[in-house]
Every structure is written in structure tokens, then in C-alpha cells.
Design a protein around this nucleic acid. Structure first.
Lengths: 233, 233
DNA sequence: CTGATGGTTCGGCACCGGCCGAACTATTGG
DNA sequence: CCAATAGTTCGGCCGGTGCCGAACCATCAG
């Protein structure tokens, strides 16, 4: 009963095209201003303002005032995860042919992107697969992983701040997040974020402006081979 | 762009209270009739019918007609996953399956009964699940199974007359029949009947008079364990 | 202080979509 | 063949909500 209402309320919030556009943009994990979000949603500022306050009210978004701007971001990685799950569903919808075309249209996004604050797409999957294959992470429960002792050493070696990730409050440490383009779980949670940080700080990857797309640098490609034993198409 | 629309469309479907109620009920993984879903959603049959066809259209649900009922179930585990993610956002856990009054009224019938000439109820489901899990039968088409080579040997070993079943005229050989109490498919058709015959002729089960209820004998319970690897409540 | 920019609140309009009554089809059982 | 039950389609009503114009705060630059 109550859970039903909660489900419909949350889903209804995501079900409006304008709000869905905003959420999509915010999937890059960054904070965006209200006017920026209004622009991408194709509505006026006052309409966007209404949408945004409703989503903050429902704990989908978090807002932060800075100067005369207000920045909005996803409230938690759980929100990002739910959105990814819905996008995965959209992939199964009717007319697979036309949808395939949509995928082809954005191969870079499928190759590597941010999902909230961790890596997704083929690169995210490749990293996750490599960690699994090497025994660095092991499934624990239906939606989590544990970092094994060799995994801990490996992370230390490539410069992932594991202690920092463990300190990350009540956040899940190593979570499975369903990748909508690859349709398989990649690693998220505090550890997933720490790994992504490593990719960016070591210059293995860089965020493209105004997009969730991430470009893997040449040194990033070499790192994928040497550290993760992965060959990317 | 395309992915945004897809996101909002899927979310909007889940965002209606009536549809959310239906999806919540279907989270038990079983198939439910249209009228049952209408009842729990608190809408009339015609309204429910509209909702259901829209969700089938969007590949959220799968429908199957049987007799004069239409059974609806979640189209895939991905759908269940997405719903659970949304529920997690609201901090509420998915409610456990609600028990139907009919189940409590006749637990024996629910445990084991004949469905025309084959076994149904928990035992029918357990047999079917065991055959599936062991790779003895495999789904073929929307409503049939094929008997694999190991399955053929297994049947021969426990004394199921497979050649006789194959000879059974124009009748379907191995058919999926939706179980009324378990709401999941069990095996019917000529092979299902032959399996039931084996249960009766080997003294594993016996029909109760003036009833569809079937009693599993002690040797039947042992057989369920040894041949089918199933533990029954 | 004044003007400019970013953001929110308010009020009213217009449209979408959920709902039901009524009528119709299909299956089952007697 | 008829009655009962399950389900769908059609048409029209009505409420919720997304939208914008206008007015109203807040911050910053000069």
C-alpha cells in the first residue's frame, strides 16, 4: 500500500519528459545550474524551477546555492542506479531495429561514460570484468562486491584511495550497478567512484564538456592493457 | 534524446498509481489474471484492461491467454530489478507476496492435484523446475518444451513411457500449463500425463476420491528427493 | 544607488490521460 | 442453445498537472 504509493510517486516524477531530460543530464554526476537544466529540458526557467523543487522535495536531487546560482545534482548514487535500470528497460522495448540505430548514433557514450560518479560503458564493464577475473572483487549478496586482499593490494598499487572510500559514511562500498548499454553490472559505490577518480587524476580518462561521455586517453588505453589485461575495440 | 524519451515513457507507465499497484502485485514473479489485477488496483475491469495492454505494448509485461482468463506477468527480471530500484529510492522494501484466501482454504489442493491428466500444484511445479534445472527439458516456443537427450534417458530410468507419449496422436507432446495456485508454468501435454501416470503406477501418489486433490505417499516424497532433488514443505 | 542576471512564486489556461458506463466478443458449463 | 463469466473496445466526462506571463526576491557589478 504505502510502498505502492512510493513507487508511483517516484516513477511519476521521472515520467515527465522535462524532468527526465534534467535527470539525464545530471547522470554525469556533476551539479548543474537551474537555467542550464531548463535549457536542456526545453522549458522556461519558472517551469524548470517547479520541477526542480519537486525533485528536491522527493529526495531525488540535492540543491546547493552558490552566489546567485543554484546548483542541482542527483541526491545519491541510488538515484543514478534507478535511472540506469529504467534505461536498461527502455532497451528491451519494441522496435529493436530503430533502437539499435540510436545506439550506433552514440558509440562514444557506449564506449565510456560516467554513471553518476563512476565509470560505465564498455570501459566500466572491462574494469569490472578484469577485477572479477583476477579475483580482486567477489560478489557478496545480490547487489554488492567485497574487495579481496589481493584486490586491496592491487588498488594500492595503481593508486586507488581505498581507505578514503571505506571512510565514505553510510555509502555502499562496492555496489553492482546495471549498465544500460552493456546490460551487465559494473562496479559503483564508493570504490567505483575511487577507481574513476584514479582514471581522471592519472590522466587515463577525461570528461568531455556538457556530456556524460568520457574519452580514454592513450595512456589510459595502455593502462587498460597493463593493469587490467583488457583489450578494447 | 531518444534515450530520454524512452526513460520518461517507461517511468510514466510505472508512475500511475493503478499501474504501480499492479506491478507491485506482479513483483511476486507469478502470473495474475486481469480481473485480479483490476481488483488490487481498485479500478474497473475495462480500465485495467487498458493499463495492461499498454504495459504489454511497452514490454513491461507478458500476457498469456489460457481458457477464458488472461494471465499477466512481468516480462523479465530486468523489469523487477528496475521496480525494486525505484522502491529502494523511497526507502521502502518490496512487500512480501500476499497470501490468497483460496490458498489457505485448501492447502492440500494447493500442494498437489491433477490438472486434467497431469500433476499440478507445488509438486507439479517442483517436478517441472527439477527437469528444467537438470537440463532435461528446454523451452521451445512460447508454450512448449522439448525433451533433451539426457531428459530422454532420465525418463527411461524412472519409468516414464516416452515412446507412448510420442505416439499420442496430434496431442502436444510437452506443453506449458499455467498453474492456478503457483501461477507459474508446469508441464502438461502427453509427456506431462505420462509423468503423472508414473507417479500413480509406482505408488508415489494417489488420487483422493471425489476431488482433484492428490496425496503424495511416503515413497513419493522419497522419490521427489532422490529423482528430482526437490525438498517439499 | 541602479541596472542586470539568476531564480522563485503566483495565477490562470489548456491539454492529456485516467476513469467509468455501455456494448461487444470469447470461452465455459449446463 | 442459453446463461454466466472473463476480457476488450468505444465514447465522453472530468480532474490533475505541465506550461507560460507577470511580478517578485537575491546577488553581483559598476
Amino acid at each position: 500500500m504505502t510502498t505502492v504509493n512510493a513507487l508511483s510517486e517516484v516513477a511519476a516524477l521521472m515520467g515527465d519528459p522535462a524532468r527526465a531530460s534534467m535527470l539525464s543530464l545530471l547522470m554525469d554526476g556533476r551539479a548543474h545550474t537551474a537555467s542550464e537544466l531548463a535549457l536542456t529540458a526545453g522549458v522556461t526557467a519558472q517551469t524548470a524551477s517547479g520541477h526542480l523543487s519537486r525533485m528536491v522535495e522527493a529526495n531525488l536531487l540535492a540543491a546547493r546555492a552558490q552566489g546567485r546560482n543554484r546548483f542541482y545534482r542527483l541526491a545519491s548514487s541510488d538515484v543514478a542506479h534507478a535511472i540506469e535500470s529504467l534505461m536498461a528497460l527502455a532497451g528491451t522495448r519494441a522496435a529493436p531495429a530503430s533502437l539499435h540505430a540510436a545506439w550506433r548514433r552514440d558509440p562514444d557514450l557506449r564506449f565510456c561514460r560516467t554513471c553518476y560518479d563512476h565509470l560505465a560503458g564498455q570501459v566500466g564493464i572491462a574494469v569490472t570484468d578484469a577485477l572479477t577475473k583476477a579475483g580482486h572483487i567477489e560478489p557478496k549478496g545480490p547487489r554488492d562486491w567485497t574487495l579481496t586482499e589481493p584486490g586491496e593490494l592491487f588498488c594500492q598499487r595503481i593508486g586507488v584511495d581505498v581507505p578514503g572510500a571505506r571512510r565514505a559514511g553510510s555509502r555502499h562500498f562496492a555496489r553492482q550497478c546495471l549498465d544500460w548499454s552493456e546490460r551487465r553490472p559494473h562496479i559503483s559505490g564508493a570504490l567505483g567512484a575511487a577507481i574513476a577518480d584514479t582514471f581522471f587524476s592519472r590522466g587515463w580518462a577525461e570528461k568531455l564538456r556538457r556530456s556524460r561521455t568520457v574519452r580514454l586517453t592513450d595512456s589510459g588505453r595502455r593502462a587498460m592493457g597493463s593493469h587490467f589485461g583488457a583489450t578494447l575495440s
